[in-house]
């Protein structure tokens, strides 16, 4: 494998507006196949791996890495602008327009297998039946998948309904620095269930940072996609307990 090929891949990624990984990382992410697939397929593979990677992986970027300025989170600074494009990954997302308790009630209804449409209570289809017949899958796991499917379905509805919702994200750069991002103007892809944990974004040069919070708007924030599976699953599974804890409710399900 020539380093020329990796440089070619790197250029293609760059042209697609993705953060540019190091040649070393590209090398490590190359599929272990001989002969290698054609370039477009290869680029697609590398792109998927990049978007699924943890941005804090050492040597993911060439030095100096594209990190946030170290004093960015300072609440004393009324307004600053981001000096350069910075790739970040999503660690957490909150809908600030909806009370936590409302979200708790919604999640609990889904856990009971119910959902409301206006006043009507709807019984959700249960996805567990095949699993029970199969018998091999542990019950816990099957229950979780069934429920998650329901959560996702429900979340899609909720996102569509809440067009004016304001979200706050916890974002992390390649150095592991965390910063809050607040939706100043609506970005359609940001929503609980539609935005994944571990999903990658680019905060563009010139983005406003107010009191240590990055103000997100379509002009200065690009959502690239991707997801870190393990993080996303853990976040989904722990969401109800976190919400309950936050409002001071008994969290024992």
């Amino acid at each position: 494998m020539s380093s020329e090929l990796q440089a070619q891949i790197r250029t293609t990624l760059q042209n697609q507006g993705l953060p540019v990984p190091s040649l070393t990382w590209i090398q490590s992410a190359m599929p272990n196949r001989n002969p290698l697939p054609p370039l477009p397929a290869l680029v697609a593979t590398i792109k998927t791996r990049l978007l699924a990677a943890d941005l804090t992986t050492p040597n993911l970027f060439e030095s100096p890495p594209p990190a946030l300025p170290s004093n960015l989170g300072n609440p004393e600074v009324k307004e600053a602008k981001l000096p350069r494009d910075v790739p970040v990954q999503v660690l957490d997302i909150e809908n600030l327009s909806k009370s936590k308790w409302d979200q708790v009630e919604e999640l609990e209804a889904i856990a009971r297998g119910e959902q409301t449409r206006g006043r009507e209570i709807i019984r959700l289809p249960t996805g567990n039946e095949e699993d029970e017949d199969g018998g091999a899958v542990s019950q816990n796991a099957s229950a979780t998948t069934g429920r998650n499917a329901a959560v996702n379905a429900n979340v899609a509805n909720a996102a569509a309904a809440a067009r004016n919702a304001t979200h706050r994200l916890v974002l992390q750069d390649c150095k592991g620095q965390k910063v809050h991002g607040l939706e100043l103007k609506r970005i359609d892809r940001i929503g609980i269930g539609s935005l994944n944990i571990g999903e990658k974004m680019v905060l563009k040069r010139g983005a406003t940072v107010a009191r240590g919070i990055v103000l997100l708007e379509p002009a200065t924030c690009t959502v690239l996609g991707g997801k870190v599976d393990a993080w996303h699953r853990a976040w989904m599974d722990g969401r109800l307990a976190r919400l309950k804890e936050a409002v001071g409710a008994d969290a024992r399900g």
């Binding site: 600030l96 327009s97 909806k98 304001t166 607040l182 107010a210 919070i213």
Partner: peptide, 10 residues
């Protein structure tokens, strides 16, 4: 908004 700091910033 259900967050004071965000509201203050805005």
């Amino acid at each position: 908004l259900f967050d004071r700091a965000s509201t203050i910033v805005l």
